[in-house]
């Protein structure tokens, strides 16, 4: 569903080279209410307990990166954040899934304020990483799933390189590892009816790209940070 860049990023393009987009007009009260009730419903259904491990919720600009196990992932992470943080946090989602049908599009655009990435038309001059950073501007946080797509085996797959380029282009943004436990049993791949089991969302301490850290080293470190939240 959600995916940061899964392409090789051209090194030349700079994150904030283009003019910043004007901030989107505020969402309507109805959409806010829909968001609130949807968040409450999702948390009730997925019985999610939220843990902040050596980490605190904050409205500063962040990128939450998580393992991807279910269609509910982005919604549940978004719902697990406190309301003020949720206001400034935008999930990054796949356009092919979320712009299909009026309801889904309305949810993505109006309720979650998602950044939709076209996975089929990834081009050098229109790279997803640039798009994400442009949309995030200087105040929004992002939710990304660096595995690219939902894991089939239940294990956490290798991370795609998008997270590295995000970190490289915006070294000032905190990267928060998030581990999602048991949500794949609530709504497994290929199912559309959820089973209300209990899940657990763990937020870990922030990490940054070290000076001169190689891409593969960084991605492996980020992946370990997610895995370590499993206990």
């Amino acid at each position: 569903m959600l995916s940061p860049a899964d392409l090789q990023e051209p090194v030349a393009s700079a994150a904030l080279s283009g003019p910043l987009l004007a901030p989107k007009p505020g969402r309507t009260a109805f959409c806010r209410a829909a968001g609130l009730s949807l968040a409450a419903l999702a948390r009730l259904l997925a019985g999610s307990s939220v843990r902040w491990i050596a980490s605190q919720p904050d409205t500063c600009q962040r990128i939450y990166f998580a393992n991807h196990t279910s269609h509910l992932d982005a919604l549940i992470i978004w719902a697990s954040l406190p309301q003020p943080v949720r206001e400034v946090t935008r999930p990054v989602a796949a356009k092919d899934y979320w712009s299909r049908g009026i309801f889904r599009r309305w949810l993505a655009e109006q309720v979650f304020d998602a950044i939709l990435i076209d996975r089929t038309a990834i081009k050098v001059h229109q790279s997803p990483v640039d798009l994400m950073l442009r949309e995030a501007g200087t105040s929004h946080s992002l939710i990304v799933f660096p595995e690219g797509s939902r894991s089939v085996s239940g294990e956490i797959d290798e991370f795609k390189s998008g997270l590295y380029y995000l970190a490289k282009k915006r070294p000032d943004i905190e990267l928060i590892p998030v581990h999602i436990d048991n949500l794949n049993r609530v709504l497994p791949r290929g199912e559309f009816l959820p089973v209300p089991l209990l899940s657990c969302i763990s937020f870990g301490p922030p990490l940054w790209l070290e000076r001169g850290e190689a891409k593969l080293d960084f991605l492996a470190r980020a992946r370990r940070a997610v895995i370590s939240l499993k206990e």
Binding site: G47, P188, L193, V195, P196, L197
Partner: peptide, 16 residues
């Protein structure tokens, strides 16, 4: 029941 099933491993075939 939620707690019980959460703790017992189930497979995808049990979902429905």
């Amino acid at each position: 029941l939620r707690e019980f099933i959460t703790l017992t491993p189930t497979r995808k075939g049990d979902h429905r």
